[in-house]
Design a binder for these strands. Sequence first.
DNA 1: AACCTCATGTAACGCGTTACATGATTGG
DNA 2: CCAATCATGTAACGCGTTACATGAGGTT
Lengths: 184, 184
Amino acid sequence: MSLDGVLLALLREPGSGYDLHGRLESQLPHAWTGELSQIYTCLRRLEQEGALQVAAVASRSGPPRRVHRRTPAGTRRLRDWVADGPELGKLREPHLAQVAALGELGTAAERAAFLERLTVALSERLDGLEDLEHRDFDGLPADFATPRFHAWLALRIALRTLRAQLLACEEALALVRERGPAAG
Amino acid sequence: MSLDGVLLALLREPGSGYDLHGRLESQLPHAWTGELSQIYTCLRRLEQEGALQVAAVASRSGPPRRVHRRTPAGTRRLRDWVADGPELGKLREPHLAQVAALGELGTAAERAAFLERLTVALSERLDGLEDLEHRDFDGLPADFATPRFHAWLALRIALRTLRAQLLACEEALALVRERGPAAG
DNA sequence: AACCTCATGTAACGCGTTACATGATTGG
DNA sequence: CCAATCATGTAACGCGTTACATGAGGTT
């Protein structure tokens, strides 16, 4: 499962399930989203499989923190995941299927409205990534071959991808606006 | 579920489950992938819910074809799906998480090898989409406000997105090659 | 004879989400 | 006092994949 790899990667520094959830949202929002409950079950499995070691640490609030750290086997597993080559997930882009089905809407105004909302949603996502860029990577990292450099690379790829998609949607919107009205 | 919408959209022309599976691969490879078994169960549910009507038609080979067509309720449901606004799926981009974790690999050569394989995989995907473009949409469609026009729009967005991602990966590869060796 | 395409499904399993359940601390 | 944050999990359900089962017709 790819969540295994994602969590092992996030565990460069030890952390609780709750921590990992936060890191996922703050460090890898462009790569993965996951619910807490799923993270907990996944961590339990990784622990049973010997990839993680857990230490209970008292916390100021609620149940004790279960702090996970990678075992050598866990690190090996992470390295294998990456070394085995890129894992392209299955495509799930419902919004593109919707664009293709836009002809089902009766009027050009409705079609334009859909594309407007799409550009807004993509812009918001992009804003989030740009915030992350400025927060964590202000100026390009001079240090290379480090974890931070590669995190920056991944973010850069995501940013360029998203910007291109947003641009393409804006162009689609312009096309629909200019051609649409004539055809009703 | 978004597969509901995808299948309803694909059913602009009536078809069997087997047909739909083929259409998914040939017409919407940039938006969705789905297994036959899942399509069959989904179609059954849509039928029970009154969105589809099914007619059994004898075929030259094997069991009779079950040809599905949208009922008015089905068409309404499709329209509602689109009119409700864009459905951005959850992000699942394991390869970006892998890029971010590239520091786990020991040598710059290994890191470069990963990015090479990634560019190859993305290129192949892009080739497939470009084939589709030339096969189905040679020259931009002069007809607008039609299903074909919107199918072309969706494909165009996917193409631009993918090209940008490929370019960004190639640039990442160049960076790793030029900076990597110095850092071992 | 072997294999591919057409054509249907079921069953088992795993991944993922939603909802539920609990409870301390901190800040307004 | 209320809400948010920190911190853990379980249970039920649905989505999705893989494997299994069947079988006709055409191609090599």
